[in-house]
């Protein structure tokens, strides 16, 4: 693998919540690099603080200690794409309205931003649904809107917080194929959070296995399997078993 530039570097990032009667240590000394245009998967059991870590990278929460270095400087709010597990679409906005939101907030004029939004709507295969509202869409389609909306921020960094966690198994498989297709067409640096080992192996260039509560990087796996990958491939299964054996039980 060619040597890639580090896009984001996390150094000893820790997060502790101080509650009334106790303190909860969620993240402990997380150190990792995200390389440019790679598909990095953060894999960990449920409730292990993956979302918190992603929120810290997105600047929605502050780390208790440690630092995050962006190679090109910390992006301003609005210059970083994020896809949420529960879609977080604006229910009163159409598909177009959701996808153009970032540019609208930045004050881009209507014709320009809608042309841009249209490109991303086409990219995720939702042409013809521009005027639909989220309520009229299936779960898979909703998340396509979420992906298009994040892409439309034109950020070269995309954070994805268990984006397929709320989908049924069949839709999940097809969305996994879809996200790889989208990413190969339009390369960005992706940090993808999941608790699903197969999903991590199917998607990631690299997997960071996180431990549970407090969360730290337990092991790094480089997935050197050609795409498109197969769930039943021998190498795939061997790696899967290895990761599963090393994963903390989600209690």
């Amino acid at each position: 693998m060619a040597v890639l530039k580090n896009k984001i570097s996390l150094k000893n990032v820790s997060k502790t919540y101080y509650l009334k009667d106790r303190t909860v240590e969620v993240l402990k000394d997380i150190t990792l690099d995200v390389k440019e245009n790679e598909f990095l998967v953060l894999l960990g059991p449920g409730q292990c603080g993956k979302t918190v870590l992603l929120n810290i990278i997105a600047d929605l929460e502050k780390a208790t200690s440690g630092e995050i270095i962006f190679a090109d400087g910390r992006p301003k709010m609005g210059d970083l794409g994020m896809v949420f597990q529960k879609y977080a679409l604006f229910p009163w906005k159409t598909v177009m309205g959701n996808v153009e939101m970032n540019q609208k907030l930045k004050g881009v004029d209507k014709a320009t931003r809608q042309a841009k939004a249209q490109e991303y709507i086409n990219l995720v295969g939702l042409q013809g649904f521009e005027k639909a509202i989220p309520k009229q869409l299936s779960g898979g389609m909703k998340q396509r809107v979420g992906i298009a909306r994040a892409y439309a921020s034109e950020s070269d960094i995309m954070l994805m917080d268990e984006p397929f966690g709320a989908l049924d198994a069949q839709t999940r498989y097809s969305m996994e194929d879809e996200i790889i297709k989208i990413w190969e067409k339009n390369k960005r640096t992706i940090v993808f959070v999941t608790n699903n080992v197969e999903e991590a192996l199917y998607l990631g260039d690299r997997i960071m296995l996180l431990a549970s509560r407090p969360s730290y990087v337990k092991k790094e796996y480089i997935v050197d399997l050609p795409r498109p990958r197969s769930y039943t491939d021998k190498a795939f299964l061997e790696m899967r078993n290895e990761i599963v054996a090393n994963t903390d039980l989600d209690i």
């Binding site: 977080a88 009163w92 921020s153």
Partner: peptide, 25 residues
């Protein structure tokens, strides 16, 4: 709060957060 987070990530300032996201919601 997820809608607020989505708004923040998309770059809404405080005024936009109120008029573009909170009020319609």
């Amino acid at each position: 709060p997820l809608l607020i987070n989505a708004g923040l990530v998309l770059g809404a300032n405080r005024r936009q957060l109120l008029f573009e996201i909170t009020l319609p919601a």
